[in-house]
Write a protein that binds this DNA or RNA. Structure first.
Lengths: 151, 151
DNA sequence: CATACATATCATATGATCATGACGAAATCA
DNA sequence: TGATTTCGTCATGATCATATGATATGTATG
């Protein structure tokens, strides 16, 4: 469903959402925390900062933070910079123009199942995916290391 | 949502479903009917024949036909040879293992919207997308040409 | 049996996504 | 000011989906 890229973006944002929002997290820390390529994630985070989802700071002590709190950031804001829902997705058969008045044979049935998917991304907040317990891999928080003690 | 390839597959099957099922349609006719690359569509049709969705016949008068009637062919049968629903799709965050007992934060909410999508493909029959009127592009039926008169 | 026809198969090209590496630019601090 | 740290940007490579082209194989027919 999601491309690898926007999957990284979503996981990165969830990762940031679990950190105290007032201190930036290095891109490399997010990358190792998620177990994804650091250089690639940097670019993803940069895109997210251009979109205003995260805020970046350079220099020592810099890094990335969520711009808005998790309960005010939608999944769509995170994902759409990479996988936009274009009108083509709304037609199962890939027709550019497939409205309600001149639909393809699949139009109505497809909308019925696919609209909720779009709504899911537009209406679900990052905070709703945080569920404190349980998630081993994605919730892996920064532990002890050099950072944090040094400032 | 669907890859180009399985979109072609679906459109090709819908095209075949509109032809009399006892006479084969050439791959090239399907391709021009849909306006998609002929060589590529051949491969797609060949895959569908390996999967038993369509039946192929070689030589003069040969071509492709639906193996089963449209009301006994599901969308999943057409689409899954190209875009299989693997367990990875069931986790929004791409986790290999994300069951009901050890879920990621998105698990339940995501299943609620995505299961219906899978069900749609598994339960919808090709016949249901045929709606005789309306569809200009995909329903374009073979008209008059050389074929048909010559046999 | 020879020819035409249509699918089957293989080899190659193109483009997008995913990924890596090197260098530049801003911020901090001694 | 100069060294370090961190993001920003550009250049390049790897991989996969998509697409094209050529040839082989099977089938019908005169």
């Amino acid at each position: 469903m999601l491309s690898k890229t926007s999957e990284y973006a979503l996981r990165a944002v969830l990762f940031l959402a679990r950190q105290p929002r007032d201190l930036p997290v290095r891109a490399s820390d997010v990358a190792t925390g998620l177990g994804v390529p650091a250089n690639y994630l940097s670019k993803v985070l940069h895109t997210l900062s251009r979109e205003g989802v995260v805020t970046s700071e350079r220099g020592p002590g810099g890094g990335f933070r969520l711009t808005r709190p998790p309960h005010r950031t939608t999944l769509a804001q995170v994902v759409e910079p990479f996988d936009a829902f274009n009108s083509r997705d709304l037609c199962l058969l890939g027709r550019r123009r497939c409205h309600d008045d001149k639909p393809c044979g699949a139009h109505e049935r497809w909308r019925e199942v696919f609209d909720p998917v779009i709504d899911f991304f537009r209406e679900t907040m990052v905070a709703e995916l945080l569920e404190p317990g349980g998630e081993a891999l994605e919730s892996l928080t920064l532990e002890g290391g050099a950072r944090g003690t040094e400032r």
